[in-house]
Structures are given as C-alpha cells and as structure tokens.
Design a protein around this nucleic acid. Structure first.
Length: 710
DNA sequence: CAGTGAGCGAGCTTCCGCTTGACTT
C-alpha cells in the first residue's frame, strides 16, 4: 500500500518524526525554502502590483524532483513545514510543485508523539494571509537591497551592499564608535573609613555617604583632600542596621540570541561557532548503545516555551537530585517577546538525565561546554529563586554619615546549578545598633568613568534581537556579511567600523533615513501583521513603502555625493607630479590616496597607520605599522615586509622596556608587560595611544609603471 | 586556537530568510 508523505524543513526533524509515525508514513525534508526570487535580477514587476517571479532555487532542483516523484505515488501529502510566516510560504511553494490532489497543511510547535499525531488528525488549508505577509517581507527586502546596493557601486565602490538588516547593524557599530570618540574620561573620588569596634578586633570598612544630610559627590583630588582633612571626628556610633531580602530569579531557557551571548561571554565563542556546535548537538551524536540521538532541541528559535511534559520531567529530576525545596511551587512560565513567531520550543536538552558528566565521553571539549551551558541554563530555569540577605550599616559621627553594605546568600536555589546571575557574598563584622566605633583610618580612592565598550559579535546580536531586527537564522550570517563587505574590522573580539563603513553609513543615513532607523523593521512588522490578519493587501503595504522609497532613490541618484569620483579630502597632501590635491578613495585592496586630477594624472600612494615604533628584530631598519588582514582582523607588522616577517596581534605601546630595552610594550591588566623579557611593569605612567589618534600618514610612494599601449 | 600582508580607478557585484551538504545552477 502507498505511504503517506510528510514534508518538514529539517532532516533531523524528519528522522525524529519518522519514528513517531510508523510504517504508513514517509517523512522527508525540503531543507528550507525551495523557491525564491532570481539571484541575478530584481524579479519583481513593480508596474504590475509588484508581482514576484518565484523560481525553484537552482541548488534545490534535485530535492524538489525527489519530493515531486514521491508525491505522485503517495496516498496523501502532509505539508508539515514550520508554523511561522516563512514556513507557511514554504508550504505554499511545495503545494505548487508537488503532484498530488490530496494535500493537507499540518502544524505543531513541539516535537512530541502526542503533538504530531494530533496534527495529523487535523489537517487544514494553507493560510494565504500568512503567505502574503511573507511575500510582502520578501519583496520589500529585495527592493531595498537590490536598489540601494547598485547605487553604492556607482557612488562608492563596486561590490558593496545595503539592506534593511545589515545597514542598521553597521549603523549601530558606527554610532557606538562615535560615542567612544567623543567620550571624555572623568575622575571621581570616594572616601573610605576603617572603623574598629571598641570591644573586638575586627575591622569595618564604610564609605562616606552624607555630610550634613547631603549626598557626597567628589570630583577632584583637591576636593577629596579638603574633605578628608576636615573629618576630625573620631567617635562614631552605629545608628541604623537595615536588613532586606532580595529575590533573584533564574534566567529563562535559551533562545538563539541568548545562547550566542552566553557562549560568547563564558566560552569566548563567536555566534557562528556557537551555531555550528549547536547544530551538531541538534543533529545528534553516537551515544553508547542508544545510537545517534539529538541532544538538544532546535537551535534557531525565538521562543522560551517548554513542553509541559518536559517541565514535569525536570521537576521529577530536580526533586530526586536536590530535594523539594529547590522546586518552585508553581511551574514557571516565561514570557515571549511580542515579535516571537514561536514555531519552536526554547533551546533545551532533549533528555535531562543526559547530564554533562554522562555525555563527556561522547563529545569534544567545546561541544561538551556548550551542552553544559544549555543543560544548566534549562535546569536552573525550572528551579526555585535564590534569596539574598542584604545588610546596610549606617555609622554617624557629628555631621558625617558612613555606610557599609554586606550581602549573604540565604538560600541558593537555582544557583547550585547555574552560576549565571550569581552575586558575590560580602560579609561584615558583627555590629549592633547603638554600638560605638572608632575611626582608625581614612583613605581616599580615585575612580574613573569608563569609556563605552565596542560591540562584540554577540552584543551586537543582542541589540538587533531587542529591536526585532533580523531572525535567529540570520544573526550570525549578518555579522559575516558586514565583515565580508569590509564594513567592520575586529580586534580581540570587538567590532570596529572601517572608514568605508563610516562613509557609507553617513550617505545612507542622509539619503534613506527611514530605512536606516532602528524602528523601521518594527514598523514593517506591524504592517505585516495587518496583512496576516487579512486586513490589508500585501501589495498595498509594499506600495505605501515604495512610494516614498522610490522618491528617496531618485533623489539620491542625483544628489548623493560620488566618492568614487570626488574621493574624500581628509589628508592634506598635494600630488608631487602635478601639484593637485590628493584625495582618499576606496579600492579593491582598501583605502589609497589618488590624485584628484585622475584620469589625467594617475599618481597613487598607499595609506598606512604608523605607530612610530621601530621594528624589534635585530638589524631591521623597519617600523611597526598597523595592518588589516584580507579577512579584516587588525594586526601589527613590520614596514619592511616581506623582507622582515615581524608580526604581533596585540597593540604595541610606544615605550621601551626599562629592563631589556625592547622598543615597545603591551597593555597588561594592571599596567604593561614586555613581550621580550616578560617583565611586568606597573606604576609606569604611559600615555596610551587611543585608537583614532594614530594619524593617517603617507609612508610610501608608489610609482606607476607606464603602461605600454598595444 | 588560529593566526599573517605589499596590489588599487574593476572582472557585473547586491537583499533577507528558510535549511544543510558539496560535479551539476
């Protein structure tokens, strides 16, 4: 007898569902989208209600043929793609390409035997409103990307790109850099008193908090000294002890963005490395005599939802392992963001009893660490909150009020499983109210406000996710794209906008302010919601957008500055051949200086970031200069390359080592260290070269060989 | 734990969102 055909998106999912459905069913995978707009053309008929020209994706022809052949002989076809917008569109494309009169759409958002069987019993029709919302999204993105990108080829550099998601990502990186550039470090001071209880020997440290009932703020060393000298008072009294309980709740289970952040923070993995490893865990490993089993649920998700039966299983496990007091009374329910499409569960272990310890023999160290992160986060999310005891001690003497704060964990709750959200304990010596104290010593401490830090890949993903820009399947690829296009370089895991990014960003913000706004996607989503509700035609939505977009576009074509021709005038140099100004341009291999008289004068010069530090290699006359690898990583090398092969990944500081006379030092935690004799140098005042202060300087002249015609 | 380059005015580039293998478009 012919089997029923079930089509899902992922092959690992197909395998699992196959086990649930038995021999009357054949479950196959379509590997995501099967149809799309053509790659080399716009593929949208703007004049004719934006009619999209969907084609089978060339690389998917084989897959589609296989599914079509299977559908011909199948008893019935079930389209079981994901229940979100993209999944509905895939089902719609499949229904166009598969050959069977009995086609039904089925949906489920958790992969359990019950959920699948229930879905099979209740097939429905494809939701065309949802499909239309997807078409609106697809067409809008294509218009934005394929109209603005060619404009950048014309105005700035070939091969550049722009898009609803990537251009906002680049903008965020650029704006953070602006904040860093304009940041002015400010100092502030605190005064700390050491008190001794009269009876015992212990010491109590407390910070000066108020003078004459006014909060203390000290902004200079002078003020700190003046104030400290005024405090003549030696006799103090504990006037108040306040104890309060603080509840600390566990984090919800992981979704894609939070997994990427945690793996970045704790394991120093990039979002793409994290996803690669999570994919392996999802597809499964050979576990003892179990064969190949998936260790975690699907890793591209925006939902914190967990199947009820799994929560109950977790509670049984927790009660057995740790006891009843570690279970919350109520089964926790975490809330999704409004923008969540909720097609998959949260990222969690498929079986809780597969502890990291038990999985150790089967996993690589990295895989094990990511698994452990997921396992612990999930388990903790099902546990009781932690309770902290916070104590505040107020000490008064005359008009001066000092304050000390202590923290103690009263009940660890979820913290015995996960150290995330852990707070360090700080104990205070036992004192009583009314107790008399003596001020033994007074010290003032200098502090500085901290410069905002650059984005890491994961923290950029976090902001994108918060603003609803991009989807779980695109966070990591978006970062790769802006790297590949030369919009960001990176050093020690931090993203730095290139000059190219700053220039392109300024042009885009000026000419396409609506699309470059971080709220643009949210507004688009609102529109798509009305399409999904059937309240608006998708073509009307796109038309509303296209009306002003095409105006912006034609205006930009005329008015946008042409960097390709005019260049950037940031370096005041004249051409030594014809005397004209030299201007900066973006070439195939990065920035270079070109004569503004081009094409009459073809003189060019290279641009190099100098450090002013001589090369440390013996007998080398070179200088250390900043370089960027082909991929975009920043490093330091010798100007005499390739004769001299000196390289360093760390930023050298122009100050020679007092011990071995090496010409430069590296930053260290509390000062500097010498790479040669590994001496640690503290108390050594060195003005650090701030990024951006390194001036662009011309170090090399390049003579163009005359081209012989013919 | 992998990492690291000189060029240069163009070879036809580009979007976002699903999903994994990989002669094939």
């Amino acid at each position: 007898m012919a089997k029923n055909l079930v089509v899902v998106e992922s092959p690992a999912k197909a395998k699992t569902i196959n086990k649930f459905l038995g021999k009357d069913f054949q479950v196959e995978s379509c590997y995501g989208h099967i149809k799309d707009l053509p790659k080399k053309k716009m593929g949208i008929d703007v004049e004719n209600e934006f009619k999209p020209n969907y084609q089978i994706i060339p690389a998917k022809r084989k897959t589609v043929k296989k599914l079509r052949d299977l559908s011909k002989t199948a008893e019935k076809v079930y389209l079981a793609t994901d229940l979100d917008r993209e999944g509905e569109a895939i089902a719609w494309h499949l229904s166009q390409e598969l050959d069977n009169s009995k086609k039904g759409r089925i949906v489920f958002n958790q992969i359990t035997r019950e959920a699948i069987r229930e879905a099979i019993k209740n097939p429905t029709e494809i939701n065309l409103h949802k499909v239309n919302a997807q078409q609106g999204r697809r067409v809008l993105d294509r218009l934005v990307g394929y109209k603005i990108s060619p404009l950048l080829w014309e105005k700035v550099k070939r091969g550049l790109s722009a898009g609803r998601v990537q251009s906002v990502a680049v903008r965020l990186v650029c704006e953070r850099e602006k904040e860093i550039e304009k940041f002015v470090q400010k100092e502030y001071w605190t005064i700390v008193g050491e008190f001794t209880p009269l009876a015992k020997r212990s010491l109590l440290e407390a910070k000066l908090s108020q003078v004459e009932n006014k909060l203390v703020k000290i902004l200079s060393e002078k003020k700190a000294k003046q104030l400290a000298e005024k405090i003549k008072e030696k006799e103090y009294k504990v006037i108040k002890i306040t104890a309060e309980k603080k509840k600390i709740f566990p984090f919800p289970p992981f979704i894609t963005s939070t997994l990427q952040q945690a793996a970045s923070y704790y394991l120093k993995l990039s979002p793409s490395q994290t996803m690669r490893i999570a994919q392996d865990l999802y597809e499964g490993e050979e576990i003892g005599n179990e064969g190949r089993v998936g260790l975690i649920t699907y890793m591209r998700t925006d939902s914190v939802r967990v199947a009820r039966e799994v929560q109950l299983e977790a509670r049984r496990y927790l009660e057995k392992e740790f006891g009843k007091e570690f279970l919350p009374l109520r089964i926790p329910r975490y809330k999704n963001k409004k923008s969540s499409q909720d097609a998959h569960e949260a990222i969690r272990p498929t079986k809780i009893w597969r502890t990291p310890e038990k999985m150790k023999p089967y996993l690589s160290p990295r895989h094990l660490k990511v698994y452990e992160l997921i396992w612990r986060r999930f388990l903790a999310s099902q546990m009781e909150k932690a309770i902290l005891n916070k104590v505040t001690v107020d000490i008064r003497g005359g008009k001066y009020l000092f304050r000390a704060e202590g923290k103690k964990i009263k009940f660890p709750g979820f913290m015995i499983v996960s150290k995330e959200r852990y707070e360090k304990e700080k104990s205070l010596p036992p004192v009583k109210e009314e107790e008399k104290l003596k001020l033994k010593e007074l010290t003032s401490k200098q502090h500085f406000t901290e410069v905002p830090s650059r984005y890491t890949e994961a923290s950029l993903v976090k902001v994108l996710e918060e603003k609803g820009i991009g989807r779980p399947s695109t966070y990591a690829p978006t970062i790769s794209t802006i790297k590949r296009r030369g919009y960001v370089s990176w050093r020690k895991g931090k993203l730095i906008p290139t000059l190219l990014a700053k220039v392109v960003n300024e042009l885009l913000v000026k000419n396409f302010s609506t699309i470059l706004d971080t709220s643009f996607t949210a507004q688009m989503e609102e529109g798509l919601d009305t399409v999904e509700e059937g309240e608006k035609k998708w073509t009307v939505l796109v038309d509303g957008f296209y009306k002003y977009f095409s105006k912006d576009l034609s205006k930009a074509k005329k008015k946008m500055k042409n960097i390709k021709k005019e260049g950037l005038q940031i370096v005041p140099t004249n051409c030594e051949r014809c005397g004209a100004k030299m201007i900066l341009k973006f070439g195939r291999y990065g920035e270079f200086l070109a004569c503004s008289n081009y094409p009459d004068c073809k003189n060019t010069k290279a641009l190099v970031n100098k450090t002013g530090i001589r090369c440390p290699f013996p007998d080398c006359e070179g200088e250390i200069i900043e370089r960027t690898s082909k991929k975009g990583a920043i490093f330091y090398g010798c100007s005499k390359f390739p004769q001299c092969k000196f390289v360093s990944r760390e930023t050298p500081i122009k100050e020679s080592c007092p011990h071995c006379r090496n010409p430069y030092l590296f930053r260290d935690k509390n000062g500097f260290k010498c790479p040669e004799c590994s001496a640690k140098i503290k108390d050594y005042r060195i003005e650090e070269l701030k990024l951006g202060e390194i001036p662009y300087k011309v170090v090399k002249k390049r003579i163009n060989a005359a081209r012989v015609a013919g």
